[in-house]
Each structure stands twice: as structure tokens, then as C-alpha cells.
Amino acid sequence: MRRDSFAAYHPIVNFGYFVVVLAFSMIFMHPVFQGIALISAVTYSIVLNGIKAIRFNVLYMLPMLIILAAANPLFNHAGVTILFYMKDGNPVTLESILYGIASSCMLITVMVWFSCYNKVMTSDKFIYLFGRIIPALSLIFSMVLRFVPRFKQQIRVISVAQRSIGRDVTQGNVVHRARHGIRILSIMTTWAMENAIETADSMKARGYGLPGRTSFSLYRLDRRDQTMLITLAILIAAVLIGASAGENTIRYFPSIHMKDQSWLSAVVYTAYGLLCMLPAIISLVEELKWKFIISKT
């Protein structure tokens, strides 16, 4: 896996960033903001995942965008600019088409941001962040992550063992397979439950349940992270000021209306663009720096 420079920041930076950009992408339906968010999200996903991200975006996200955008006018007949009437007599309006495009754009942006989130927010970071707030649940989370690969392995072991007494999951009709599958799951359940008793012992033996449990972390909030947090805070503040001034809002129904562009718009657009592009910029700068260092030595 490629190590991304933004992912190397403190988990609070990573998580906070994604919460903010996701919320902003969902709230701001203004076309400029949507465009900025979509382009940035796609850029970062390509930085993170390379060719795979391009394939994902073109093969799944693009068709989805088109289908969703097309679906809206079929149900939504509000708006004043009527383009034509459908067979059932309902009007298709310009506003509803544009709104369909905007809302599907929003959805795609959110999905692409999430694909970046999935890459950056590893379980370690999640457990670090929530280990203090919800210690028991984040421990459960860690335990489930531990058990799942183990159980999958055991399912394989059991199906081989079952096969060797003449019961094969891959042969026979659907009902047959389903029955065998359920039998395997049942065997696995017993195995898992019985073995987990020792896991509980091991937790108790290491003092689980004593009052005042703390949470170990691999991470340190260093100066670089602090600088980053301050930068993020300034950019977010700028965007929010813009939002309160109505720069980021658009009205679709009954007719489309947004605020006229001004110098403030330009500032807010720039701030939002910087905010969204930040991880990609960081990655690029780091890469250039690295190349520079390598070329010197």
C-alpha cells in the first residue's frame, strides 16, 4: 500500500477533516461548491488509490450520477420552468432536472470522500479516537476485527473437515448448499463460543474490568499536526462566514436563485478549494520534496 502523507497526520486531523468535508459536501448545494468538492474528492481518491480509483470513479460513480440525475425529474415536478409534459401528464421542469444533477453530484461526492476515508481512517486510528469516549464499544470493535479473519479461516477449516466426511458445500443444488452452509455456520458458532471462554479468561487475567482503564496510543499530536489544525480551522471559519453571508446557498424551487458573485465569493471559493484540495496538495508537496532530497544525495 502507498503511504499517503495526509494519512500520516494525527488521527484527530484525519477524522476531523473528513467529518467537515463530508458535512460540507452534504450541505452546500451551490454549484461552485459542489464542483470544487467533487473535483477535490476525485483528485484525492486518485492520489490515494491510483488507477483503481479512476476505474471505480468511471465505472461506478459516473453511471450512477447519470441515472440518479435522470431519476429525479420523473418524480419531482416542482419548478416554474416547464420544459415538456410526460405521457402521464406530469411536467418535467428545468429546476427539477438541475436539482437532480445537483443532488446526485452531492451523493457521488460523498461516496468518493468515503472511499478516501476508508483508505485513510484505519482501525488503529478509529480505536485511538474512540478508545477514550466509548472504551467498551471500541474494544468490541477491535475484538470483532480480530475475530472476523479468524472465523473466516475456521469456516474454511470446518468446510474442509466436513467435506472429508462426505459433505461438500460446493456440490449439490441450492437447498443442499444452503443447508451445508448453515451447518458449517452452526459448527463455527459452537467453536467460537467455547473458545471465547478462554479469551474472557485472558482478559480477566490481564486486569480487564479494573477501574480507571486508560488507552494506549501510537500517536502524538506534534507541531506539524497543530499547524495543520490551525490551518484547517482558518479555512473552515472562512467557509462558514461565507455560509452565513449566504454565499454557499442556492434555491432550486420554485425557481433557481443564488447570490450574485462578489469579492467575498472569491475569498470563500478559494478557502473551500484550499480546504478540499489540502490532502492532495500535501501529498504532492511531500512527493516533490522527496524527489528533491533524493536528487541531492
Binding site: S142, L145, A196, L210, R213
Partner: peptide, 26 residues
Amino acid sequence: LQNPDNQIVTDKVWHELAFGLESLGL
């Protein structure tokens, strides 16, 4: 205990190493 697999509680080596220390509240 006897079974190496059953005793491990968390999904990461570093976390497992620290598990007891977390319980002690260090």
C-alpha cells in the same frame, strides 16, 4: 494459557501488547 489464538483479544500486535497496561490504568 494453552491456546495462543484464544488469548489474543485485539486485532493489532501493538494493542495486544498494551492491553494489560491499559487495564492497569498506566
